[in-house]
Each structure stands twice: as structure tokens, then as C-alpha cells.
């Protein structure tokens, strides 16, 4: 134990996890080395790395990943901006809340994937349908978090602002929105995470152009387990990155809020 304690903190904190991952890798290598399963089912780690390099050097991986990310950005942008606007309106005004809450609550009950067949009929299988689908998925988390974020702003702050006779705009921009910001950012993180998995769903169900989901489906149709593995790992890493990135943003914003207080 003492030897572990001497390691730098970065490694020390990840020491056990690192061991587990190594163990998994060992297990995997052994299973494929002794041909426990056919290669078609379980590729060797070396085959996966080779497939990764091959996909990378042919540019296929970059093109797939790039087109998926472009779709996400478009869908995410449409979804979050609409979600933010509606969430803010409902948060600020009780009338708005009463008007829209039942509608959105009803629509929210549809599992996002359930929209796929309908969107295909409405928008076809080209880009529009993929972006619409992602937008729907990104819409709800941000709607709810914006709404709740605004509602969580302490009424006493608002009262104080009223005493100082803040204008509506000033009240919104200096009290309400900053107060709701951490909530909104966590909504953005959720939206982004959802978008990432929805783009894969969209691409699996509407295959018209390149994308990481399309690459994934192709790999399973062609029984290329090595490519499938590469895709799974890449999708996982991107998901982790998104989570990490927006998580950082979230902590930074809430710590700012604390000091602000």
C-alpha cells in the first residue's frame, strides 16, 4: 500500500481502475487467444487496434464521426434554443406555465425512440429527420431544467430586487437568469448526452448518409466485430468526453455562483 501512496495523485486516484481495465484486457486477450469464441464474435484486441488504425487512416472514422457531430450540433441547437425559450417563458410566467405545461407533459411521455417511425414518414430518411429527432430529444431536458432553474431562484432575491425597483429586464438579466444558470447548464449537459445517443439511434434507423451509427450498422451486417468494437469504444469515449466537458462547465459555473453569493 505504501508504494501506491508514493505515486503522484493523478495515478494514485486511478490506480485501481487502471488495474481493472488491464484485467479486462487480459481476459479479453486470453479469450481470443485460446479461441474461446469464433473471431467473428470476439475479435482480438490487436484486430480491434488494427481496425481502428485502418478506419482512421482511410478517413472513414473521421468522416463518420464528423457527420454525426454536425447532425448533433444542428439538432442540439434547434432543440435547446426552443427548449430554453419555452422553459424560460414558463418559468417566468405562471400563465405560460398553465398554458404549455400540460401539452409538454403529454408529449414528454412518448419515449424519444417512439418518434422515429413518425418522423420518417413526415420527413423522410435524409438529414431533416435525423436533426428533427435529435432536436426533440434535446428539447425536453433543457425545457425542464430551465423551468426548474428559474423557479428555484429564491423569492427573497426577487423581493430585494423589487425593493430596489429593478426594471423587468434588469431583474431577469441580473437575478433570475444567473440564478437559474447552473440548472440550465446541467440541462445542457443532459441534452448533449441525449443528442449523442440519439444520433446513433437515428442513424441506425434512417440510413442515408455517413455517420458513426451507420458505420456501426454496416459492421454488424458485414459481421465485422472488430469494426463494431471500434465504434462502441469511440462512441463511449465521445460520451465520456461530452460528460466531462459539460461537467467541468457545470462545476465552474456553480462554484462561481457560490463565490458570487
Amino acid at each position: 500500500m505504501s508504494s501506491i501512496a508514493n505515486l503522484p495523485a493523478v495515478i494514485r486516484n486511478r490506480y485501481h481502475g487502471f488495474i481493472s481495465f488491464l484485467f479486462l484486457l487480459g481476459l479479453w486477450s486470453a479469450a481470443s487467444h485460446y479461441n474461446l469464441f469464433s473471431r467473428e464474435y470476439l475479435p482480438t484486441p490487436v484486430a480491434v487496434v488494427t481496425a481502428f488504425i485502418r478506419l482512421l487512416s482511410s478517413g472513414q472514422l473521421c468522416i463518420s464521426l464528423g457527420s454525426s457531430l454536425l447532425r448533433i450540433i444542428a439538432g442540439f441547437f434547434v432543440g435547446t434554443s426552443l427548449g430554453f425559450v419555452f422553459g424560460a417563458a414558463m418559468g417566468v410566467s405562471q400563465t405560460m406555465e398553465k398554458l404549455f405545461a400540460p401539452l409538454f407533459n403529454a408529449l414528454r411521455q412518448v419515449p424519444v425512440i417512439g418518434w422515429i417511425p413518425l418522423i420518417i414518414v413526415w420527413c423522410g430518411i435524409a438529414e431533416t429527420s435525423k436533426i428533427t429527432f435529435i432536436a426533440i430529444g434535446a428539447f425536453f431536458p433543457i425545457l425542464i431544467s430551465t423551468f426548474e432553474g428559474i423557479r428555484s431562484v429564491s423569492p427573497s432575491y426577487v423581493d430585494v430586487a423589487r425593493v430596489f425597483e429593478y426594471s423587468r429586464f434588469k431583474l431577469l438579466s441580473t437575478i433570475v437568469l444567473p440564478g437559474a444558470l447552473p440548472g440550465i447548464v446541467s440541462g445542457i449537459r443532459l441534452s448533449m448526452g441525449t443528442s449523442w445517443l440519439l444520433v446513433v439511434w437515428a442513424e441506425i434507423n434512417t440510413r442515408s448518409a455517413a455517420g458513426i451509427g451507420d458505420l456501426l450498422t454496416r459492421s454488424s451486417e458485414g459481421k465485422k466485430a472488430d469494426v463494431a468494437f471500434v465504434c462502441i469504444i469511440v462512441i463511449g469515449i465521445v460520451a465520456c468526453l461530452i460528460n466531462e466537458l459539460f461537467g467541468q462547465l457545470e462545476t465552474r459555473l456553480s462554484s462561481w455562483r457560490k463565490s458570487y453569493r
Partner: peptide, 20 residues
């Protein structure tokens, strides 16, 4: 406040029409 909301709503409707 209501003015702000109506402005926002008009904007949203505008965007929606443009998109759809």
C-alpha cells in the same frame, strides 16, 4: 413582463415557421 413574453413568442413562432 407580458410584453417580453409576447416578443419571445413571436420570435419563436417566426423561427418555427422558417424551419418548418
Amino acid at each position: 413582463m407580458n410584453k417580453l413574453i409576447s416578443i419571445i413568442m413571436t420570435l419563436v413562432l417566426g423561427v418555427v415557421t422558417l424551419v418548418t
